[in-house]
């Protein structure tokens, strides 16, 4: 598949995988089935030097780690967690999650942009998770974000592209990769996001809660590829049926 660039790195897989909801023992098989090159992990789940440490299950190979700042309630906390991620050797990629809402896990765009600015200046490759607001997305890019990660629907909801029109605006107006994150519940929805022109999609719950997560990861891989190819192929026009022309609006042109 054609690649795209985030910060210093070129990616060929456009399926990102969240890791928070799997049995760790399954992780490797799911990552391989999805042919993923980037996986996110919540730094809060790292258990460095301890047991069942998620880091040990996702590191290695050609994998790029995208630690997230889950647990941060404001910019200051996100920055602190990002620094910890760097200290733990997770690299320079950081997904900003600032979530002051425990019910729907809605992100705080304002604090997210603040954290983006600070961390981008410190050399992080910053990927802000946000509500798909065009104005805020522009601010995030101005603040130094390498991409934006708008939510399709609330995290874990599997509801699909509820914010479709807003995500489309971001894709059309932002000169940076748009990675659709959160809420994608089915491969067909991931495919649709890719057809719209998303650079990549990130899934977690949809795969983790599937009856067969490995098979579902493979299904997502194929859907993302199909959607990307459809985008590159440029979709054919959708016919709009003309109204009844019994009283043509341009009939006057024929009257000589």
């Amino acid at each position: 598949m054609d690649g795209f660039t985030l910060g210093p790195k070129r990616f060929h897989s456009r399926l990102f995988l969240g890791t928070g909801k799997f049995p760790l023992a399954n992780m490797r098989a799911v990552i391989e089935a999805g042919a993923c090159e980037m996986v996110t992990l919540a730094l809060r789940r790292a258990n460095v030097g301890g047991e069942e440490n998620i880091l040990e299950y996702v590191k290695g190979g050609n994998m790029t780690l995208l630690p997230n700042t889950s647990g941060a309630r404001n910019a200051e906390e996100a920055v602190r967690i990002a620094h910890l991620a760097r200290e733990l050797g997770c690299g320079d990629f950081i997904k900003i999650e600032v979530i002051p809402d425990s019910k729907y896990l809605m992100p705080d765009n304002y604090e997210t942009v603040k954290a983006t600015e600070i961390l981008a200046k410190e050399g992080f490759v910053v990927l802000p998770y946000m509500n798909p607001d065009l104005v805020d997305a522009r601010r995030a890019i101005e603040a130094g974000a390498a991409a934006v990660m708008p939510l399709a629907a609330p995290i874990g909801s599997n509801k699909g592209l509820l914010t479709r029109e807003h995500i489309k605006m971001l894709i059309d107006e932002i000169d940076a990769p748009v990675i659709v994150d959160a809420g994608i519940g089915k491969p067909s929805q991931a495919c649709e996001a890719m057809e719209l022109g998303a650079a990549a999609v990130l899934v977690n719950t949809a795969v983790a809660t599937a009856g067969d997560p490995v098979l579902m990861a493979e299904a997502f891989k194929e859907a993302v590829r199909a959607g990307r190819r459809a985008y590159l192929a440029k979709a054919g026009r959708v016919l709009e049926y003309a109204g009844d022309a019994s009283s043509p609006l341009t009939g006057f042109l024929g009257v000589q």
């Binding site: 760790l24 919540a42 730094l43 790292a46 301890g50 440490n53 647990g71 602190r80």
Partner: peptide, 17 residues
Amino acid sequence: LASKGLQVVFNDYVRAF
């Protein structure tokens, strides 16, 4: 927990303050 298909989590916290 493993026998139930569940994942034991030892740590799910990072000090942010």
